[in-house]
Design a protein around this nucleic acid. Sequence first.
DNA 1: ATAATTTTTTAGCTTTGTCTAAAAAGCGTC
DNA 2: GACGCTTTTTAGACAAAGCTAAAAAATTAT
Lengths: 217, 217
Amino acid sequence: MTFSEENYLKTIFHLTAFSDQEVSTNAIAEMMATKASSVTDMLKKLAEKDLVHYKKYQGVSLTANGRLLAKMIVRKHRLWEVFLVEKLDFPWDEVHDIAEQLEHIKSEKLINKLDNFLGNPTEDPHGDPIPDAYGKIIKTEKLLLSELGFNQSGICVGVKDSSKEFLKYLDKNQIALGTQIEILTKEDFDFSLKIKVDEKEVTISNKIANNLFVKLV
Amino acid sequence: MTFSEENYLKTIFHLTAFSDQEVSTNAIAEMMATKASSVTDMLKKLAEKDLVHYKKYQGVSLTANGRLLAKMIVRKHRLWEVFLVEKLDFPWDEVHDIAEQLEHIKSEKLINKLDNFLGNPTEDPHGDPIPDAYGKIIKTEKLLLSELGFNQSGICVGVKDSSKEFLKYLDKNQIALGTQIEILTKEDFDFSLKIKVDEKEVTISNKIANNLFVKLV
DNA sequence: ATAATTTTTTAGCTTTGTCTAAAAAGCGTC
DNA sequence: GACGCTTTTTAGACAAAGCTAAAAAATTAT
């Protein structure tokens, strides 16, 4: 498999992760910042290799085979992210781009040894689950901070948006995985929240609350 | 820089490391298992980017620029090899192929953090020197086992040939970096040696002795 | 139901890195 | 210096993966 094929599989996997429907050519093109015509070409090639179900004009979905391969790429990506943060001390907003490269290294033995070296983590530094060597994914149930009510408290367990900008914002406000957050007040007008983090009161917008996963406590 | 360009630079670096002369198109083609015509095409491109000195039919050598880049690739390769052996417990004969992939990961910060994580090693698992972040290489003087005389002893500090086959042979005979070896007798007919390794006597061929680096002790 | 719009595919071109076959340059021998 | 052999380069082709522009299918609106 080429890097490009792997990137397409991964994109299709992410786009079908929640909806579980066929995904459109345009959606893939947009996510990969490429042109629909390029996507069509690749879909034909992936269909040829029995990695996707593809019928002209009908959208596309992964075959069992394709899904397993996609999960292995996600596994590699997330394990490398753990390595970068835990072992090399990278800040969590810098690991994605490097992991995008590392995820294409081909060696099953390498990734399994890395997994062991890291202590078989089940989540990456953004709280996303790491598939095991068989592709099994354990998802922990989590809710958005915006779903909590007054006086409820949650522990931050992940981010929905993992862009550099959002992660840096969280760093600046001393919110990290494991941080406890209590909802103090909710503004009816713009749904902004006043929350308590480490004994400090902070006001955050609805957009922030909508991208932060917490576990009720 | 593409992977292919990096591989050419690395090959030219290795071929010019000792002789310090221009290297021929054919020599590069042979080492890379490709065709001379492909090499010519690439040399033009590298010359264009001022990474090599190239004049038709005259052979090729690295520019200062090209040499530095080549050293950075070698640095990455060897640091990753240390990681694989020291941290992930890979046997020394399995790391080369994986390091060939890892050496192309682009992130200066990554490689410098990796260097620190590994304790700034100066040699890779085969005894080859690791260039520092500025490209500086400290070579320790070492001689071939075949250059030792009767009753002299050396500590194994590296291998000249680092093929899987040779490394496995050494493993089988319990010879590793750091192993002490004493020359017992030398056969005049085929230059085979009787040596003492760990209180055990072993007979090795001239070819083996010619590919094992030692430090006099 | 037909027209307009959007989405997707096709056709044809570009670049990168490879190849084969043929031409050109360099070298060794006399 | 000419002849033949080896090495190197050129010319032209191909596969991968992208692009643009145009055609075709699907969808939405009238």
